[in-house]
C-alpha cells in the first residue's frame, strides 16, 4: 500500500474531527489529544474496543462522541473483544453478508493499567494469534479513572494515591516502569511504536506507516495527565515535550521487531526540569532534595540512551 500522506508539515493533518467535543475527560487530557490525532489518520471506519478506564466514559449513554463504532468490553479483555469483532467481520465478508466497504478497522483502546497489568495476557494472546488489529494504549502512568493509583506503568519515584511519599517510602513508587514496548516486541508484531501528542507529525507518520501491515499494529501513547500528575492543564504539551527532550520518553518504532528511534534528542535536557514541573515528583525536591532518587532516574536515562548516542557519535 502506498503511503498516502508523508506528514512532513502540520498542515497535512486532517481538518476533520472524528471524536466530537462534549466528552467528560479532563480539560487538557494528553491521552485524548493523542487519540484525536491518531484518529485523524485512521479515518472514520473504525470500531473501538475499549477496556475500563477514563476513556470508557467518552461514550456515555445517550451520547457518543465517535463518528465510528464502539464496544466497551471489560478491563482485562478488550483484545479478545477485538478478536471476536475482527473474526466476525471476516466471516460476514467472506460469506457475502457484508460488503467489503462495510469493513472496519478494529482498535483496542486501553489505558496503561489495562495494558500493562490486567489485560496483558489477553493482549499477548491477540498478538500471538497475529490478529489484524490496532492497539492504542494511552499511557497516563497510573490508574487514572479510579483516582490515580500506581500501575506497573508508573515511573520510579512518582507519587500516586497508593504509593505515597511517606516516611518509609520517601520516593513514592519504588519500582521502575515496566517496559511494555519490549514485552510486546518479544512477540515480534509487524508494527509497534511509541508516540507523543506533542509530536503530531511523528505520530501521524507512524499511524500512516502502520496501515501497510496486516496483523497487530501497536501503539503506546505518552499521555500527560494534569489530574494525576498535578500540573496545570495548559502545560500538557510542554510536559510531553520535556519527556522527549530529557530522554524519558523515547520516540521509536519496531518493524517486525527491528527497533529504530524516530527522534533522538541532540542533547538530553536535564530531567529535573521535567520532574519539577509536576506535583507527582514534588517530594523529590521538598522538603529535602532526594539526591539518591534523582541520581537513579538520571542513570536510568543515561543507560537507556548510551548505545544510541554512541551510534550517533560514530555516525558523525
Amino acid at each position: 500500500m502506498a503511503i498516502e500522506h508523508a506528514y512532513k508539515k502540520l498542515k497535512e493533518i486532517s481538518l476533520e474531527e472524528f471524536i466530537l467535543p462534549g466528552t467528560s475527560t479532563c480539560g487538557g487530557c494528553g491521552g485524548l489529544e493523542a487519540l484525536r490525532l491518531a484518529h485523524k489518520v485512521l479515518g472514520k471506519n473504525v470500531v473501538f474496543v475499549n477496556a475500563a478506564g477514563c476513556f470508557t466514559l467518552l461514550a456515555l449513554f445517550p451520547f457518543s462522541p465517535f463518528k465510528g463504532s464502539w464496544l466497551y468490553t471489560t478491563m482485562a479483555s478488550a483484545p479478545a473483544g477485538a478478536q471476536g469483532i475482527r473474526d466476525a467481520l471476516d466471516l460476514l465478508i467472506a460469506r457475502g453478508a457484508l460488503s467489503i466497504e462495510e469493513d472496519l478497522q478494529v482498535i483496542v483502546l486501553a489505558g496503561d493499567g489495562a495494558s500493562y497489568d490486567i489485560g496483558l495476557a489477553s493482549t499477548s494472546g491477540a498478538i500471538y494469534r497475529n490478529l489484524d488489529f490496532w492497539y492504542f494504549c494511552y499511557d497516563n502512568e497510573a490508574y487514572g479513572n479510579t483516582g490515580v493509583q500506581m500501575s506497573s506503568a508508573t515511573p520510579y519515584a512518582a507519587r500516586t494515591t497508593t504509593t505515597p511519599a511517606a516516611v518509609l517510602t520517601p520516593e513514592g513508587t519504588e519500582l521502575p516502569k515496566k517496559d511494555l514496548f519490549e514485552i510486546w516486541r518479544a512477540h515480534c508484531p509487524p508494527y509497534l511504536a511509541t508516540v507523543s501528542p506533542r509530536h503530531p507529525l511523528d505520530l501521524a507518520r507512524k499511524f500512516e506507516k502502520a496501515k501497510a501491515f496486516k496483523g497487530p499494529k501497536l501503539f503506546i501513547a505518552y499521555s500527560p495527565c494534569p489530574t494525576g500528575w498535578h500540573y496545570d492543564p495548559g502545560q500538557t504539551p510542554e510536559i510531553a515535550r520535556l519527556a522527549v527532550e530529557t530522554g524519558l520518553w523515547a520516540l521509536k518504532e519496531a518493524v517486525h521487531g527491528e527497533v529504530a528511534h524516530t527522534y533522538i534528542p541532540k542533547k538530553l535536557k536535564s530531567v529535573e526540569e521535567y520532574l519539577q514541573a509536576q506535583g507527582r515528583f514534588a517530594h523529590l525536591f521538598h522538603p529535602v532534595r532526594q539526591e539518591a532518587a534523582l541520581r537513579k532516574i538520571r542513570e536510568a536515562i543515561t543507560q537507556y540512551w548510551a548505545p544510541y548516542l554512541r551510534t550517533m557519535q560514530n555516525a558523525k
Partner: peptide
Amino acid sequence: ASRPLAQGIA
C-alpha cells in the same frame, strides 16, 4: 461502516 453503533456503552 454505514451504520456506526456504540455498543456496551456506559
